[in-house]
Design a protein around this nucleic acid. Structure first.
Length: 940
RNA sequence: GGGCGGUUAGCUCAGUUGGUUAGAGCGCAGCGUUGACAUCGCUGAGGUCAGAGGUUCAAAUCCUCUAUCGCCCACCA
């Protein structure tokens, strides 16, 4: 695409290439793995974003990291699958669509389940494509032909199969338990979906008079006075002397005049409040458990919509917080309120809509999770699954340890409907049927709901009941019939009226199956056989419990194997002020806007370079600018390289020839060192570090030095460097490609266009081989020698800058070097001349006369002394002061080294190579001190 | 109440089995448009690695404590 220099504009322009290039890759089928049973595949399943959502920077980070891993493995030759997908996101989506409809004056309850679901599907069709487009813009090389949606037939059947298996083995059960209820969403939530936060509240002390006529009362302390209407006991600690005589007595609840007992239960903390605890079994988990122990009745007073129900007597119909106000003032007016304290407590909120959760007793489906958790913990403990970074292993195991049963039913419409049916003929009295439209009841009045049995008595046939039923509420003793594809008959009574449970499953239930349900399980699918277990599961640490832990539990249960080998947890992306990004804060950055401004490669680099797993990242505009600037720098370096191929006419082949020139040996050696290092870092999941190493090599060594050194030789007609300019750049962009796919591809194409041998038979960098190297190949001599040349150039530049020598003025330089550097400096004299603007460079021999120290600026490096006579610019006093300071520093270092090496402990205990290194440094420092002293002596 | 993490240059962050004089980007100061690149080049300033103690020949790195910010988990009304 970019075959001429003219086409390679002076600046990297992502907009010009990205979209076309993505399509070009996709058309060639690069995103699809080949199935090769001789090879171990590399598989990543993408965390499915909300199908109707917009990608935020967290997703962009996910995509950047996963794409880097995937592209790296693909280039290594592994059959590589990155499977994308989306999640139906039960509550979130239903909530959004419901609000949308409400804004049009439509109430979902009025239009009914079927109509509502049609609206949601329409919504999905309308907004569902955004995610895929955004991933394409991010350059994500995922296999769109295998894209899955949680509500697709395959994953849906996997959900039902899992439910049935767990039910049949007794690990899914239906029962009446205390659950977290969201009065806004009208559904149960799991413990994880309830977020607790501290809130300023009050502790009300309420008097309950004894019924013995003594006129005495017991005082209870509560943060939720409105629940007193549902109290069925007051509990005290059996060891509490204050209440020793009270147990067994009864008290009377104000206004509603219910008589309730005082019971003894050691759950009660004598230190807290008054030592007497009001017990509301229907609206508090602990109270429920106390109630169970003592056989107390659970009286519900707060209804599903958060208003007080008929059991609330005079307060019925009030909203729960309005009721609290009202009850407190009534109690106070009637003298039942002893006192009020300020109190900090924790309130649970719905993680989607922030409504305060109401603990509520209801019939739900649960997973008996402890046995699954035990196996899931074991898989991590024994190393079958590795978590990166490792510290999350403890968090994970701790969570598994104290896990409670998982409430999986949701009173929503959008999601996987629970595959459980109830038989009207068997459980007629236990099934409350809510009708889609009213029928005429026996009394001539419209009838909206009735038990199945009652409807039969009216004369409806089973078929008619099924057809008219909008939903069924089965009581806790009803017997569900659970089947993957829906039962056609009741096992007890044959063909009958079967009514499906109205609830859907927790979204995370289906997400928990994602690694195997997307690959075809429970069928014996080829993808499943080949690609499962997957390799790496990459996601944010914030959904370790929600998702990762559940995938491990469900994966082990369903497949008998771990779902993935490695869990890589990235940190959260925050804004420049380290605030969490959220819609309500209004600080979300749209990845597409960043891409438009800086380019995809720049955004990806900003999100990943020099980051470390599990640590949060504040994404600043500066990081993105740095990414853009690097892409541009690289692009321009490539322009120079391309140009040098054309103008030199050098024939460049596929492999770099064995280098003979020191500078060429140096860059090849450094390239190999970087290649080996990068591979090692990638193996160890240190992606950010690997990226940093590549960037530093390309900018600080290749562009800043090798290109500049090569220019000098090329100018003199030496075409040898061209092969290394091309070869080193080509190999470097291959190293970088997983991180910055677009700019590296364009550069690679431009290089291949000029040196077709580089392609090595492939059409794209994406499918070229990832570079490998052996650290043992390093050319230490050339690295040291070119290092000396670079240091000399730097020293001269430094002297020029300090002496304020005008750029246009060429200067003379004398160099006194030891044998190691002398030849290298002599050989590179022209380069030094050009790069440091030196007109004449003299490498001094043993008996050559040194220039007058009073008129030179001197830089003393390891093994090299650089002297720049700057007539009229050198202040002998200043020079003396500078050298004296340097002498002090060097001597200080020398003293340290002498002490260390004089220490017997160091000599005997430190590894030999460390000792040798220190000795080398000692010798260098000594020599340097000598030379500084000598120079000072000559200065007088 | 338990547990985890951060604290390194003005800002954002690297620094993985303890081993040269602790690094980068941005910012800052000075200089610089000769054909790869001003989205750039050159030079430089800037850090007692939160604090204290300990282990060690050697500590930003390991241990203990403290401070501070943040996160996770937990049934105290």
């Amino acid at each position: 695409m970019t075959n001429t220099i003219a086409e390679m504009a002076a600046a990297w322009d992502p907009a010009r290439f990205e979209e076309a290039r993505y399509q070009w890759w996709e058309e060639r089928g690069y995103f699809q793995p080949r199935i090769d049973h001789e090879q171990q595949p590399f598989v990543v399943i993408m965390p499915p974003p909300n199908v109707t959502g917009q990608l935020h920077l967290g997703h962009a980070l996910t995509a950047s990291v996963e794409d880097a891993l995937v592209r790296w493995h693909r280039m290594r030759g592994d059959p590589t699958l990155w499977l994308p997908g989306t999640d139906h996101a039960g509550i979130a989506t239903q909530y959004v669509v419901e609000n949308h409809l409400a804004s049009q004056g439509i109430d979902r309850r009025e239009i009914g389940r079927q109509k509502f679901l049609e609206h949601v599907w329409e919504w999905v069709r309308e907004y569902g494509g955004a995610i895929q487009n955004q991933h394409r813009r991010l350059g994500a090389s995922c296999d769109w032909t295998r894209e899955r949606f949680t509500l697709d037939e395959g994953p849906s059947r996997a959900v039902r199969a899992t439910f049935v298996n767990l039910y049949e083995s007794g690990r899914i059960y239906r029962g009446e338990r205390m659950i977290n209820w969201c009065p806004t969403d009208h559904t149960a939530l799991s413990d994880l979906e309830t977020e607790y936060e501290d809130a300023a509240g009050k502790l009300w002390h309420i008097n309950y008079p004894y019924t013995d006529g003594s006129g005495r009362h017991v005082t209870v302390a509560t943060t939720r006075p409105e629940t007193y209407l549902g109290d069925t006991a007051v509990a005290v600690n059996t060891n509490d002397p204050r209440f020793a005589d009270a147990i067994g007595l009864t008290v009377r609840l104000p206004f509603i005049d219910r008589e309730i007992p005082i019971i003894g239960d050691d759950y009660v903390d004598m230190e807290f409040g008054t030592g007497a605890l009001k017990v509301t079994p229907a609206h508090d988990q602990n109270d429920f458990e106390i109630g169970q122990r003592h056989g107390l009745e659970a009286i519900e007073v707060i209804a599903a919509d958060g208003t007080l129900n008929e059991n609330a007597g005079p307060f019925a119909g009030l909203e729960r917080f309005a009721a609290r106000q009202s009850i407190v003032s009534e109690l106070e007016a009637a003298g039942f309120l002893e006192r009020t304290e300020e109190y900090q407590n924790r309130v649970g909120r719905c993680y989607r809509c922030q409504t305060i959760i109401e603990p509520r007793l209801s019939i739900q489906w649960f997973v008996d999770i402890a046995p699954l958790a035990e196996r899931a913990a074991e898989a991590v403990r024994d190393g079958r699954i590795r978590i990166v970074p490792e510290r999350f292993t403890g968090t994970y195991l701790n969570w598994m340890d104290g896990i409670r049963d998982w409430c999986i039913s949701r009173q929503l419409w959008w999601g996987h409907r629970i595959p459980a049916w109830f038989c009207g003929e068997c459980d007629g009295d236990r099934l409350q049927i809510i009708l889609g439209e009213a029928i005429t009841g026996p009394d001539g009045q419209p009838l909206w709901e009735a038990t199945y049995s009652q409807l039969r008595e009216i004369g409806l046939t089973p078929e008619e009941i099924v057809a008219r039923a909008d939903r069924v509420n089965a009581d806790k003793d009803a017997t569900p019939i659970v089947a993957v594809d829906g039962p056609s008959a009741c096992p007890e009574c044959g063909p009958a009226a079967l009514l499906q449970d109205p609830d859907v499953l927790d979204t995370w239930f289906s997400s928990g199956l994602w690694p195997h349900s997307t690959l075809g399980w429970p069928d014996d699918a080829e993808d499943y056989r080949y690609f499962h277990p997957t390799s790496v599961l990459e996601t944010g640490y914030d959904i370790l419990f929600f998702w990762v832990a559940r995938m491990i539990m469900m994966g082990l249960e369903n497949t008998g194997d771990v779902p993935f080998r490695t869990v890589y947890l990235h940190g959260l992306v925050r804004d420049a002020q380290r605030q969490k990004m959220s819609k309500t804060r209004g600080n979300v950055i749209d990845p597409l806007e960043s891409i438009a401004e800086y380019g995809t490669d720049a955004l990806r680099m900003a999100l990943t370079i020099a980051t470390t797993p599990g640590n949060d990242l504040a994404l600043t505009p500066g990081r993105m600018e740095a990414g853009r600037n690097f892409a541009n720098k690289l692009w321009n370096a490539a322009r120079f390289v391309a140009r040098s191929v054309e103008t030199s006419g050098a024939a460049v082949g596929g492999e770099m020839p064995e280098p003979s020139h020191r500078e060429d040996r140096w860059i090849v050696s450094r390239l190999n060192g970087v290649t080996a290092h990068v591979n090692q870092l990638l193996e160890d999941f240190q992606l950010g570090q690997a990226e940093q190493v590549i960037r530093d090599f390309l900018w600080d060594e290749f562009a800043d030095w090798y290109i500049e050194l090569a220019k000098v030789r090329i100018r003199n007609g030496d075409t040898a460097p061209v092969a290394y300019l091309v070869g080193a750049l080509e190999q470097s962009v291959r190293l970088l490609h997983p991180f910055m796919p677009f700019v590296t591809e364009e550069i690679w194409q431009s290089l291949v266009a000029r040196a077709p041998g580089l392609a090595r038979g492939v059409e794209s960098i994406m499918v070229s081989a990832y570079p490998q190297a052996d650290v043992g190949d390093a050319d230490r001599a050339s690295e040291a020698e070119v290092g000396d040349v670079i240091n000399v150039v730097r020293a001269i530049r430094n002297a020029r800058a300090e002496g304020n020598v005008e750029h246009s003025r060429m200067i003379e330089v004398f160099v006194d070097a030891d044998t190691r550097s002398r030849q290298a400096i002599d050989d590179s004299r022209e380069a030094i001349g050009t790069l440091a603007r030196v007109s004449s460079l003299r490498v001094l021999e043993e008996d050559d006369e040194r220039p007058d120290p009073a008129s030179v600026m001197t830089a003393i490096l390891d093994g090299v002394t650089v002297m720049a006579p700057l007539a009229g610019l050198v202040d002998a006093d200043a020079e003396r002061a500078r050298l004296t300071k340097e002498l002090e520093e060097t001597q200080g270092r020398l003293t340290g080294l002498e002490q260390r090496l004089g220490n017997e402990g160091f000599r005997s205990k430190a590894p030999a190579h460390v000792v040798a290194k220190e000795e080398e440094r000692l010798a260098e420092s000594r020599q340097r001190v000598e030379r500084i002293e000598e120079q000072l002596a000559r200065l007088g």
